[in-house]
Design a protein around this nucleic acid. Structure first.
Lengths: 137, 137
DNA sequence: CCGTATCCCTTAGGATACTG
DNA sequence: CAGTATCCTAAGGGATACGG
């Protein structure tokens, strides 16, 4: 009962970032699943943009993420849709129009992202310095 | 002037998780670098354990992270060391003893991890449900 | 306009076996 | 004990070109 009909039969495109692929045990670390979920190469950028600009069309996203190829962009959007973080609305017009929007669930991630951004602001430089220092060891 | 002498000349082992490899542009998303930094497959588990148990030896880490092979564990520890998040102390005894400990810088990540853990607790199930629902579309 | 279809390459990281 | 040395593969994702 959703308004988005034209979804392909999943050719060879989709796929989850995996990379980490929830093993049975990651030890006592409870945040691995979140990382699996949200931290693929383009997942956060896409979410970030959608959270900040609201409803957007595919092409607009492309313009804001110039280094993300359409294929990858589609992959991420599909995954985010599947995970309930983005809605896709297809308007059967000429020319076709598709709009993406982050869901309320995605909005609950905003504080988390902010925490990450703040940490980055505060401490990333320190890391880079350490990295430099490590070279000359 | 640090107490850890025996560091190999970096054979073929080291390497950064990359995977995402800071492109020049990730769009206006400011948290990509942090993700590069901390969110490799085993990076967070290792940090988590060290943050919660304090100083530990290699073997202890292995026991707490049974699915992490020694090779990968070493890789992650080396990276964390390079990034200033972990210190490695070598004791030239018989048998040799090496201790790892998370740095103050690493401790600043704790609130961030907690934010992630809380989000997971609150919303992960919702994501999994959405994923289920998406299957039957 | 909104994607797909291919091809290909890099690389994290698992398996396994072996040393100072 | 604390790692190394190899070998290998699974797959994310970039490049490019085409389709409804």
């Amino acid at each position: 009962m959703n308004g988005n009909q034209p979804r392909p039969a999943d050719g060879s495109q989709g796929s989850r970032p995996a990379g980490r692929e929830r093993g049975p045990e990651s030890g006592p670390c409870p945040i691995t699943p979140v990382i699996d979920l949200v931290f693929g190469r383009w997942t956060t950028p896409v979410l970030w943009v959608l959270n900040h600009h609201g409803r957007m069309r595919f092409t607009q996203l492309q313009k804001l993420l110039p280094d993300c190829t359409p294929k990858v962009l589609t992959q991420r959007l599909r995954q985010l849709e599947a995970d309930g973080l983005v809605t896709r609305t297809y308007h059967a017009e000429v020319p076709p129009r598709v709009e993406y929007e982050s869901t309320p669930l995605a909005h609950t991630l905003i504080p988390v992202f902010n925490a990450l951004a703040e940490w980055s602001e505060a401490h990333l430089e320190e890391v880079l310095a350490a990295r430099e220092a490590y070279q000359g060891s």
